[in-house]
Design a protein around this nucleic acid. Structure first.
Lengths: 369, 369
DNA sequence: TTGTACGCGTTATCAT
DNA sequence: ATGATAACGCGTACAA
């Protein structure tokens, strides 16, 4: 190697590059130092705006940086500093408008504080989830926000073991003491159910999400509580457990329409399910709310326009994303990693659009009794 | 330091950790090696499933890994291997269903090949864009997929300079020779316009996106071409340039409704604009398509249900995401970085939902002439 | 104000 | 089959 030093550093550099099979030579802090005639550490000080560099030197260094198009290597920096300035967002499906908006909240917040976001879709699949977590652990993400796809705490425990700050979003995991940002699903379910009951509905179908998921159980609980409180018997045949997906909503709505007496209203556990159900209703020639009531969780910005009839429990996914990211960043930067788990409940709104029960459905129901 | 060696490595390890102010000691390949009684490189071989390790040794190493909960450090690996196994996705707004779906396509494809995805929202803001690109350059992402927010090639040139493979998605940048994955906006605009014309419309308003954006110009071009081809004069007052956002659509639609004679149809450059316009139309008490025609770019999975009246040019964002990721990964892994730029055009479909011109609007138009 | 020496956790290279 | 050594690019600790 020393033989090359006669020809100067640039040549040596090229040789090194060839060995690594890279076409463009990586310009390192050392190259800049050489060109500016200073030590690497001085360049480091300039790049990071640290004190202790004379204006003249600073200038020379900056010129060298510009000339060489030097871009600091964040990976090397991370290796040294033991922080990647990266967080991960693990959710079920970015395609769902709810998660999309959460993601935007997280990214905005992270970016503001100088963090980048890696996102992962688990599709509610535990295997994918644990695979991702493993990878993220290897990546040494500084923290992660996750919507756990089940109650299995295994994956999450491995995060704890490795001391990776973690915020659960939207869902709690039973028995796991961890930070959570969510909205009050039980309360939402209570209000939606009560709304239907107030409109005169008694036979109400629940198209639920997977009970493996906390949020889903909460919605079920809120529904049952409220039915009970109003002394309305619950027909188990009208409770369907499925994925938080459109196809399930479609399928179940169909099945439910075959029940007799037919339910006069449907409570969909989220918007996807509601949309699927809506498809089935249209197919059956039923109008909402004239012929059958429909309420659900989640909203869309354009919902008033698109679904002028749909009463919803509108969570605030953007706020949830922001809150989760802020809590996480807080955990990451706080000196002490020992702390009590926090649970942040983000407000949500009951948005009542048109009455979901009409005279018609009320009459029909009375006839059924 | 040597003083501690009497007490064994574990203690030494703890001491080091204290210095770094980390609670949980980082378990390194060396710790595993010590415990298994082998050299670090041997552990490396086991972890990476390389040959040249006897079954017995492999076993001992695996046991040590399990006991210590060793997780390889991907940053160190990256530093060494000069690849981060990370790609970036830079788009305007993940909240837009079109981009959401692109993102999903990209992530699925990347994950399949062992890459993670960092996503960034530029909001069509050049400053944000170049800031992100700079950060991603520092991060040494192995490649990036970007929807450029303008025709400014500066940011992108810096990518070229540093030899970072890059695929443009949805939009070309004039004068920049680069890989692109997009759909044929001009053709889509032609077909949508012709569709309106065939229905008898002659006064058609165009609510366009920013002409700074390639896609937007293409849609304008297709519109103009088709009008011209049909010998229909174009009223400049009926062409509005705005963002690809709902509020603009709302605003412009209002303005356009004040024109006299009022246009009989609206061509919205994307779905957000169309939704905004729809709001304005409803406010004005106009129904689609009975009172006014409306067509647009982009579709939603549920569109048939939600907008049973809306004729659209349905691009295939998922396929676009997949294609972009595949092209990018291909560029990244191909030995030779010199190549001709490729342009991949992803099919799209004209989805005609109900007639967008009715007898009513045709009659009104004739009366106007 | 500026520089030297070393270590962050891996792996390529070469030697045994 | 296994290991010693060096290097990836940067920043801390300490010295000058």
């Amino acid at each position: 190697m020393n033989a090359f030093s006669i020809t100067g550093e640039r040549f040596l550099l090229t040789v090194r590059s060839k060995k690594l099979d890279v076409i463009d030579p990586q310009v390192t802090i050392r190259d800049v130092a050489k060109l500016a005639g200073v030590a690497p550490i001085t360049v480091s000080r300039v790049v990071n705006n640290l004190p202790g560099v004379s204006p003249g030197t600073r200038d020379r260094v900056n010129k060298a940086i510009a000339e060489l198009n030097y871009v600091p290597n964040a990976m090397a920096k991370s290796l040294r500093s033991q922080q990647s300035r990266t967080i991960a967002l693990v959710l079920t499906d970015i395609t769902n408008p709810f998660w999309t908006t959460v993601a935007r909240g997280v990214e905005d917040t992270a970016a503001r504080k100088g963090y980048n976001v890696i996102f992962c879709n688990t599709d509610e699949d535990l295997e994918k989830e644990s695979k991702y977590i493993n990878i993220l652990l290897q990546r040494r993400v500084d923290g992660l926000i996750i919507a756990p796809s089940s109650n299995d705490e295994q994956c999450l425990l491995s995060l704890k073991r490795h001391n990776v700050p973690c915020v659960l979003i939207d869902r709690r995991v039973n028995g796991l003491k961890a930070d959570v940002v969510r909205s009050d699903s039980r309360e939402g379910a209570r209000l939606l159910t009560q709304h239907l009951i107030d409109l005169g509905h008694r036979r109400i179908a629940l198209l639920a999400g997977p009970f493996e998921v906390f949020t889903s159980r909460e919605r079920l609980a809120g529904f049952l509580e409220t039915m009970q409180k109003n002394n309305i018997p619950v027909d188990d045949g009208l409770i369907k457990e499925g994925m938080f997906e459109e196809d399930g909503g479609f399928q179940f709505a169909r099945e439910i329409l075959d029940c007799s007496p037919r339910p006069t209203a449907i409570f969909a556990a989220n918007l996807s399910i509601a949309i699927g159900a809506l498809r089935a209703l249209r197919e059956a020639g039923l109008r909402v709310p004239e012929d059958i009531g429909l309420v659900c969780f989640d909203d869309l910005p354009q919902a008033s326009l698109i679904y002028p009839f749909l009463t919803v429990w509108a969570q605030r996914p953007y706020a949830m994303g922001v809150a989760a990211a802020e809590l996480l960043l807080d955990r990451m930067t706080s000196k002490t990693r020992r702390h009590k788990a926090r649970e942040i409940i983000i407000d949500a709104d009951l948005i009542i659009r048109k009455s979901c029960g009409s005279e018609l459905s009320r009459m029909r129901e009375q006839g059924e009794r």
